[in-house]
Computed example of a mutant assay.
Amino acid sequence: MSEDIRTPIREFISAKFPQISLDDDEDIFALGFVNSLFAMELVMFVERTFGVRVPNEQLKLDNFRTMNAMAELVRGLSESMRLSAG
């Protein structure tokens, strides 16, 4: 399931920054091309694409630094939604 989550995230980032190729553990913020506007676009993309809501306490850079971190965040939020709908 992780790869299924990472694929659309990778495609979204690649569409915005076609000149780069990211590894799953590469810190997109450390590369210097990501700004706060893109970070918010990324949050909205994750919410819209995966049908989750990122609560304020989860709006941390560490949750969005890498594709693996974003996949883990989505997995956790999806699991929480399943349990609360339960």
Results as ranks from 00 to 15, higher is better:
residue 1 M to P: 07
residue 1 M to E: 09
residue 1 M to G: 09
residue 1 M to Q: 10
residue 2 S to V: 06
residue 2 S to E: 12
residue 2 S to A: 07
residue 3 E to G: 09
residue 3 E to C: 10
residue 4 D to A: 06
residue 4 D to H: 03
residue 4 D to I: 05
residue 5 I to R: 12
residue 5 I to W: 09
residue 6 R to M: 15
residue 8 P to C: 10
residue 8 P to V: 05
residue 9 I to H: 06
residue 13 I to S: 00
residue 14 S to H: 14
residue 15 A to Y: 03
residue 15 A to L: 12
residue 15 A to V: 08
residue 15 A to D: 11
residue 16 K to L: 03
residue 17 F to T: 01
residue 19 Q to S: 06
residue 20 I to R: 09
residue 20 I to G: 02
residue 21 S to D: 04
residue 21 S to K: 06
residue 23 D to R: 04
residue 23 D to I: 02
residue 24 D to K: 11
residue 24 D to W: 04
residue 25 D to T: 11
residue 26 E to F: 04
residue 27 D to T: 08
residue 27 D to M: 06
residue 27 D to L: 07
residue 29 F to A: 12
residue 29 F to E: 14
residue 30 A to E: 11
residue 30 A to T: 06
residue 31 L to Q: 14
residue 31 L to F: 05
residue 32 G to W: 04
residue 33 F to S: 08
residue 33 F to P: 08
residue 34 V to Q: 04
residue 38 F to Y: 09
residue 38 F to Q: 11
residue 38 F to N: 10
residue 39 A to D: 00
residue 40 M to D: 03
residue 40 M to Y: 10
residue 41 E to M: 12
residue 42 L to S: 10
residue 43 V to I: 14
residue 46 V to G: 00
residue 46 V to Y: 00
residue 46 V to T: 10
residue 47 E to F: 13
residue 47 E to P: 14
residue 48 R to Q: 15
residue 48 R to F: 05
residue 49 T to N: 15
residue 49 T to P: 11
residue 49 T to Q: 15
residue 49 T to H: 15
residue 49 T to S: 15
residue 49 T to I: 10
residue 50 F to C: 14
residue 50 F to I: 15
residue 51 G to N: 09
residue 53 R to M: 01
residue 53 R to Y: 01
residue 53 R to C: 03
residue 55 P to R: 01
residue 55 P to N: 06
residue 55 P to D: 00
residue 55 P to F: 01
residue 55 P to W: 02
residue 55 P to C: 00
residue 56 N to I: 11
residue 57 E to T: 06
residue 58 Q to W: 03
residue 58 Q to I: 05
residue 59 L to W: 06
residue 59 L to D: 01
residue 59 L to Q: 05
residue 60 K to T: 15
residue 61 L to H: 13
residue 64 F to L: 15
residue 64 F to A: 12
residue 65 R to M: 07
residue 66 T to G: 13
residue 66 T to V: 10
residue 68 N to Y: 01
residue 68 N to E: 08
residue 68 N to Q: 07
residue 68 N to F: 02
residue 69 A to N: 09
residue 69 A to M: 03
residue 71 A to Q: 01
residue 71 A to S: 09
residue 73 L to H: 00
residue 74 V to C: 01
residue 74 V to P: 04
residue 74 V to S: 00
residue 74 V to Q: 00
residue 74 V to I: 15
residue 75 R to F: 07
residue 77 L to N: 00
residue 78 S to Q: 14
residue 78 S to L: 12
residue 79 E to H: 11
residue 79 E to W: 03
residue 80 S to V: 14
residue 82 R to A: 02
residue 82 R to G: 00
residue 82 R to V: 01
